[in-house]
C-alpha cells in the first residue's frame, strides 16, 4: 500500500536516484510550520520541477503538483495541490483546521497525471521506455518525504500542574508550597484542605481561589525561578509553566512577579468582581 521512492511503476517517474528521465529533478521543501494560538496550522511549501517536459505539462494543467498529507493520530489524510508555477518554482502555503493535526505529520510530495498522457510526452524520458502512455491519476514524480510535529498546548491548563495536598503537620489556616516534585504541591492542613475542596466544587469558590490561592502561589513560583530556574528543569510542571510564559511573552526571570502572575492567570481579579456582581 505504500508509495515511496522504491515503488515500482510501469512508466517513467521523476525521482531521486533513478534514470527514468535523462535530466531534471523534483524538489520539495517545507521551510516553515506555524501553529496559531487558535490551533490552526499553516505550512509554507516550495516546489521545484526542473524536468522541462513535466514542467510544461504542469503549466498546461495536464500534470498536477501537490502532496499527500497524513497524520495517524487524527486520521487526517488529504491531498493538496499547487497551481502557480513561476519558471520552475511554486511557493505558497496550506492551512489546516484547528484540531485536525497532532503529533507526527507526514508530507509526501507527488506529481500526478490529470489526464491520460500519450506518446512522447517528454523528450527527457529514457529511451528504454519507448513511447509510453500514462493513464489519468497516475504518479509521474515523487519527492522526498518530509515530517513535522504539531503540539497540543491548548490542553495544558495551569490547573493541571498543581496538586493540592492535605498535611497534618501544617498549622491550621496556613498554606505551604513545594516545587521539587513533578507538580507544584500546595500543602494545606486537613481542615483547610477540605474547605478548599468544597470551594473548588462551586463556580464562585473556584473563582475566589484563583485570586486568593493560585495567584500568590504563582508569585512564589516566579520568585523561586528567579533565584535559580535550573533547580526545576527536571520537573514536569516547569516545562508547562515555561511554555505558558513563552506563549504570553513573559520573561520568567525579570519583571514584576505580581504583574506576571496576573497575566498568567488571565483576569484573576476581573472574574472575581463579575461573580460578586452576579450574586448581588
Amino acid at each position: 500500500m505504500k508509495i515511496n521512492t522504491y515503488s515500482v511503476f510501469p512508466h517513467p517517474v521523476l525521482r531521486a536516484e533513478n534514470d527514468d528521465f535523462k535530466t531534471g529533478a523534483f524538489e520539495f521543501d517545507i521551510p516553515e510550520v506555524k501553529e496559531s494560538t487558535g490551533g490552526a496550522v499553516t505550512i509554507k511549501f516550495a516546489f521545484e520541477v526542473s524536468e522541462p517536459g513535466l514542467l510544461k505539462l504542469i503549466k498546461e494543467g495536464k500534470v498536477v503538483a501537490g502532496a499527500f498529507i497524513r497524520c495517524e493520530d487524527t486520521f487526517f489524510s488529504e491531498h493538496f495541490t499547487t497551481e502557480r508555477f513561476s519558471d520552475s518554482k511554486s511557493l505558497g502555503s496550506w492551512t489546516f483546521d484547528k484540531g485536525s493535526l497532532l503529533g507526527r505529520v507526514v508530507v509526501k510530495p507527488f506529481l500526478w497525471t490529470a489526464e491520460t498522457l500519450e506518446g512522447n510526452w517528454s523528450d527527457e524520458i529514457n529511451s528504454e521506455f519507448g513511447l509510453v502512455s500514462v493513464s489519468a491519476s497516475e504518479i509521474v514524480g515523487i519527492g522526498e518525504e518530509i515530517h513535522f510535529s504539531v503540539g497540543q498546548d491548548k490542553l495544558k491548563q495551569f490547573e493541571s500542574i498543581f496538586d493540592l495536598k492535605s498535611v497534618e503537620e501544617l498549622e491550621k489556616g496556613r498554606l505551604g508550597v513545594e516545587l521539587e516534585y513533578e507538580s507544584i504541591r500546595i500543602l494545606a492542613h486537613p481542615e483547610l484542605f477540605d474547605g478548599i475542596q468544597k470551594m473548588r466544587s462551586s463556580g464562585r469558590g473556584k473563582t475566589i481561589l484563583i485570586g486568593s490561592l493560585y495567584l500568590p502561589v504563582i508569585m512564589e513560583v516566579l520568585v523561586s525561578i528567579r533565584d535559580g530556574a535550573s533547580a526545576y528543569e527536571g520537573c514536569k510542571w516547569f516545562h508547562v509553566f515555561k511554555a505558558k510564559c513563552d506563549h504570553l511573552g513573559i520573561d520568567m526571570e525579570n519583571g514584576s512577579a505580581f504583574e506576571n502572575a496576573q497575566k498568567l492567570l488571565d483576569q484573576a481579579f476581573g472574574k472575581l468582581v463579575k461573580e460578586h456582581e452576579r450574586d448581588f
Binding site: M1, K2, V8, S77, H79, S137, I139
Partner: peptide, 15 residues
C-alpha cells in the same frame, strides 16, 4: 488482495 495490489496507487486522486 487490496494490500497486495494497492502499492503505488494514489487513491486520493482517483475517481
Amino acid at each position: 488482495s487490496v494490500n497486495f495490489n494497492g502499492g503505488g496507487r494514489f487513491f486520493e486522486v482517483m475517481s
